[in-house]
């Protein structure tokens, strides 16, 4: 396949006109970043893969409504963040129902079942994900976009809909909260 260097506007026009090569180009261009955004938020490769598909399907279906005053990348990343956060909210509701069921039937909770057979490294990754998940949504998104996706503060500000100063403050607070959590795990011998 011949790859072309194209502008966002040109790419959008081609996709709206039904050009499959243009859409493939868009997927290839942004798949890595979109996957990493989803993975950073949901911490599971299969879920991140499914979410990446959902993101590009949404992009394909609504690209005609894209306003050209924003950057295409920012718009796609915003869809990825929203889809991942919605997925987490849904999973939280389901796990609440599940844990309520476990409580009634006196079974082990999901966490007890998961942590029992983990290696030290896996347990540390789980603790880190717990610490990240405990951050408020805005702090979590800003921190992960900065740390895992290497996005600039103005880009993050555009994605989560705040100011650059706001992003700076969110990242700072996220770091302090994360640090507090990890040191607590370390002090309680849970690390």
């Amino acid at each position: 396949m011949k790859l072309r260097i194209v502008t966002d506007q040109h790419l959008i026009r081609e996709i709206i006109n039904g050009d499959e090569i243009a859409f493939r180009h868009l997927v290839e261009e942004y798949s890595k970043q979109v996957f990493h955004i989803c993975y950073a938020i949901v911490h599971n490769q299969d879920d991140a893969d499914d979410l990446s598909q959902d993101v590009f399907i949404e992009v394909f279906r609504s690209i005609s409504r894209f306003r050209s005053d924003a950057r295409l990348s920012t718009w796609i990343y915003r869809i990825a963040v929203n889809k991942s956060l919605n997925f987490l909210r849904k999973r939280k509701r389901q796990s609440w129902i599940q844990s309520f069921g476990d409580l009634i039937s006196f079974q082990q909770t999901e966490e007890e079942r998961t942590t029992e057979n983990l290696s030290k490294n896996e347990l540390r990754a789980l603790r880190l994900h717990e610490a990240i998940d405990s951050l408020p949504e805005n702090q979590r998104s800003a921190f992960l976009l900065h740390k895992l996706n290497d996005l600039s503060q103005p880009e993050i500000a555009e994605i989560i809909g705040t100011t650059v100063k706001g992003v700076e403050s969110l990242i700072h607070r996220a770091k302090i909260n994360l640090q507090k959590k990890i040191i607590t795990y370390y002090k309680n011998d849970e690390w």
């Binding site: 997927v27 996957f35 893969d49 394909f60 895992l148």
Partner: peptide, 29 residues
Amino acid sequence: ALSEALSILAQEKEILPNPYLFSKIKTRL
């Protein structure tokens, strides 16, 4: 401990998306 935690995040950057992503999207569409 904290450096280790942040290195876990750095390792997660190395995970790559599914190589058949476009085919899967096309099938679903």
